[in-house]
Computed example of a mutant assay.
Amino acid sequence: MLKIGITGQEGFVGSHLYNTLGLQPEKYERVPYDKSFFQNPEKLENFVAQCDVIVHLAAMNRHPDPEVIYETNVNLVKQLITALEKTNSKAHVLFSSSSQEEKDNLYGKSKKEGRELLSNWAKNHGGTFTGLVIPNVFGPFGAPNYNSFIATFCHKLTHGETPEIQQDGEVNLIYVGELVQEIINKIEAGVSEEIYHVPYTSTHKVTEVLAKLENYKTLYLENGEIPELKTPFDYQLFNTYRTYIDLENHFPVKFTQHTDHRGAFVELIRLGIGGQCSFSTTVPGITRGNHFHTRKIERFAVIKGKALIQLRKIDSDQVLDFYLDGSEPAYVDMPIWYTHNIKNIGEEELYTMFWINEPYNPENPDTYFVEV
């Protein structure tokens, strides 16, 4: 079993890598990290000494003074090297650099210099080093006005603001899940590679991305329709967008009921894509679910009885409770990386309709069981 530590574990890429490694506990042991370690040499050395693999992601991306960015990032690398040397570590160190290396700015310079320093450490001390040059990364839970323009657009479009394009142009992109898999592949390979240019997986104009997100706002956020998703990028962008919605104030969404002397008609979901519809009955007191998905799009619709639907982001303690009653049919959608369940809290049988964008495949289920 590989013991893996991630500096910057709490950050955008770091948290995705940490959570993904956690899906295979039989293969990887995650060594706990805290950003305070870089203020305490003893704690940093203790962290380093435990690791077979260290993924160094801790860095500063933005600051009013570029010199502060440069000095911070280079000093973080130097502190890590000191800890590696003091513990006689032979760890495999993977370093997150950036395509900014090629540009004449202090952030790019700090990344290039950090990569070269760690490469020299590995050569001189018998370690293994992989220098990753990473294109623009986007995905769920990125910080707006910090991690990517997509994070900024998603946040604004889900919070009543209007995005502005500062400069249009084509951008090479990689989804954070794809980047995490690249990192894991390099961990598994376990060989030195002084510089590896992580390939981008799609190229899009900024205006094109904004148009897609505005379409998601109209179709999905305002009207509950799952839009047509033709490419892997469309799925990735839509799932990213969904994670910026203020869940507590958006769900549950009440259906429009069309009633006459015969009863009622309710449209559960309007689709630009296919998928699988199903229903369940649940006796009082029983809870279903307690699992999460990393790519699937799913809707729970209560049509009879009383239910409690609970969601919790898997690296958070905050549980969101949604109470639904079949007398006013409503739905809740499940964001990726949120474990979820549904419980019959009434005295009669609960009827729930489910829609998911892909049928269950036991060979690739994308279903991970974790209690809410």
Rank of each mutant, 00 (worst) to 15 (best):
L219M: 12
Y220W: 13
Y220E: 00
L221Q: 13
L221C: 05
L221M: 10
E222G: 02
E222N: 13
N223E: 09
E225I: 12
E225R: 14
I226P: 00
P227D: 10
E228H: 15
E228M: 14
L229Y: 01
T231P: 09
D234N: 10
Y235E: 09
Q236L: 05
Q236N: 12
Q236R: 12
L237K: 04
L237S: 01
F238I: 08
F238Q: 01
R242E: 06
R242H: 05
R242T: 12
I245V: 14
I245F: 08
L247K: 09
L247M: 12
E248W: 02
N249V: 02
N249W: 03
H250P: 05
F251K: 06
F251M: 01
V253S: 05
V253K: 14
K254P: 04
K254A: 13
F255S: 15
F255A: 15
T256V: 13
D260C: 06
D260A: 07
G263N: 03
A264S: 13
F265H: 12
F265N: 13
F265E: 11
V266L: 04
E267G: 02
E267A: 07
E267V: 07
L268G: 14
L268T: 10
I269M: 15
I269P: 08
I269V: 15
I269A: 15
R270Q: 14
R270L: 05
L271N: 15
L271V: 01
L271K: 13
L271R: 14
I273H: 05
I273W: 11
I273C: 06
G274L: 00
G274C: 02
G275H: 00
Q276Y: 10
Q276H: 13
C277G: 11
S278E: 07
S278F: 11
S278W: 09
F279N: 04
S280L: 04
T281D: 01
T281M: 06
T282F: 09
P284I: 11
G285K: 12
N290E: 08
N290I: 03
H291T: 04
H293I: 02
H293C: 06
T294I: 13
K296N: 12
K296T: 06
I297M: 10
R299I: 09
I303W: 02
I303N: 07
G305I: 02
G305T: 08
A307C: 08
A307F: 00
L308G: 08
I309W: 00
I309V: 15
I309A: 06
L311H: 13
R312A: 02
D315L: 08
D315Y: 11
D315T: 10
D315G: 03
S316L: 03
V319S: 00
V319P: 00
